[in-house]
């Protein structure tokens, strides 16, 4: 595989990963935390309505996890396409 094809493959894999993770990012914050919050408030987590939980707790916890997942997966992608440091 020449360098150009390798770099293109790497970039595509990266974009795919970013798209999926930002999909989750938008889902927990904009969709669960805001748009569907009134509906989700009908369900409770512990003593807390679920929409409120996503807005003030859950979305932030998911954000942290998302970044570390991206780091771990990119470590693999970097090695796979031999572009790691």
């Amino acid at each position: 595989m020449d360098d150009k094809a390798r770099y293109e493959g790497y970039w595509k894999a990266n974009i795919r990963l970013i798209t999926i993770l930002l999909g989750v990012w938008a889902l927990v914050s904009y969709v669960f935390g805001i748009i569907l919050a009134p509906v989700l408030n009908g369900i409770t987590l512990g003593a807390l309505p679920l929409g409120f939980w996503f807005a003030q707790q859950g979305s932030m916890i998911v954000f942290v996890i998302l970044i570390f997942v991206y780091c771990k997966l990119m470590d693999g992608v970097d090695k796979e396409y031999d572009v790691n440091e």
């Binding site: 970013i18 993770l21 930002l22 990012w25 914050s29 935390g33 805001i34 919050a37 409120f52 807005a55 003030q56 979305s59 932030m60 954000f63 998302l66 970044i67 991206y70 780091c71």
Partner: peptide, 21 residues
């Protein structure tokens, strides 16, 4: 109350954009 989530999500969600983009 609930509307405080604007700042909670707004000021943390940006770090996901920073890390990925």
């Amino acid at each position: 109350g609930y509307d405080g989530a604007i700042y909670l999500m707004g000021w943390t969600g940006g770090y996901v954009l920073l890390a990925l983009l």
